[in-house]
Write a protein that binds this DNA or RNA. Structure first.
Lengths: 202, 202
DNA sequence: GGAAGCTCTGAATGGTGGTTCACTTCTTTC
DNA sequence: GAAAGAAGTGAACCACCATTCAGAGCTTCC
């Protein structure tokens, strides 16, 4: 019988792949997509440049994986909060606060996910994930309208607006390494979002 | 006496430069920054690739000029409407409608200005112009608060949110070559923006 | 132990596209 | 008309990096 991968070997390879993705994520968070070369990622992971191609068919595929992992986590967290306890308006407020707080706690990565210039494949992923954010927000807005907590409105537009507004509000703070007065920013951001959805002033 | 540029020669050179910028703008609007090569721009302008460097020191410099011209026009138009007749809330509504309508009438260019992937130099310009949009919106929001038409709020945040929200709402329609129901979109967009600034429902 | 098949290496390769430059063509000046 | 200097040309150049690949080093299995 010929060579066959042993379970521990399979685990080792998977771990190597995970390690590669994690290192690539760090590099991207530190220097952005544009400055991230295959060599830099390989160095950071302690392997040769060529070895990257054992795990991914191209740099773009690795970049997409990095993006999906990181953005996927955020979608998941946001989805859980928006689907959680409380009335729709409370959930919306909490979701936005959690999202923004997480971004501000991991600025480099958040900037890479939200705004940093990237190759086409990553740009396409970004659009896709924005669509998911929108869908999540749209659902909560729909629930809010159904519950009579929000006025009649085009929920898709409000959802898109929230997505864009949060990103834009965060871009500047994310650009500066250490932020001033995070709490105040979050309060104002949430207040703006609730107004945007038409929730009555608190 | 040596060679000296005659007035008509100077005009000819300036016109050539203008023509080059105009052609480059068209190319960018059609295919986006990423697909815009120096050769393509030169072909479009009917000159040789090398001649581009008579007018601009680098491709990046040309790209920045293209961006500044086009984005500058939009800032100017928006500024005039926001500074025009009527109360601050009316002006805000009209400004957003005009901005969005112009974008939808020139989708390729608007997409390039707002969202299309671009080289670093253009990205920096984009940030700068977003700052200007924000400043314009922030001023109107400030006036609205002073006039008692808008509730107390962090005007900078609202302004950033409006900038991001408008962009995000427009990105999808701009991606599709011909848009459905522009008027409905504009109505909903303006309604959302007014809610975002806290204007009472109409 | 050793054959077979795998992973890993890192220097060489290759495609892309911005930029250069020797040369041609046009303008100015006398 | 001719010299001097500028603009215009476009093929050649070159830097940059993702990608490849021949060989080295491991792992599996009999």
């Amino acid at each position: 019988m010929a060579y066959r991968k042993t379970p521990s070997e399979i685990r080792r390879l998977e771990a190597a792949r995970e390690h590669l993705v994690a290192c690539a994520t760090s590099v991207v968070a530190e220097v952005g997509w544009a400055q991230t070369s295959v060599t830099a990622v390989a160095d950071s992971a302690g392997i040769a440049a060529g070895s990257v191609y054992q795990h991914f068919p191209s740099k773009a595929a690795l970049a997409v994986e990095v993006f999906r992992r990181a953005a996927g986590r955020e979608v998941e967290v946001l989805g859980e909060v928006l689907d959680g306890e409380g009335d729709p308006v409370e959930r919306l407020a909490r979701g936005i606060e959690v999202f923004a707080r997480r971004a501000l706690e991991n600025r480099g990565l958040a900037y890479a996910l939200l705004a940093a210039p990237a190759e086409a494949a990553v740009g396409a992923e970004r659009l896709e994930f924005r669509r998911r954010y929108r869908a999540l927000f749209a659902e909560v807005v729909r629930q809010g309208m159904a519950a009579g907590l929000l006025p009649a409105q085009n929920g898709e537009i409000t959802a898109a607006a929230l997505t864009g507004a949060i990103g834009e509000v965060l871009v500047d703070p994310l650009g500066t390494p250490s932020g001033p007065t995070t709490d105040e920013l979050l309060t104002d951001l949430v207040a703006m979002a609730l107004r945007c959805a038409g929730a009555p002033a608190v």
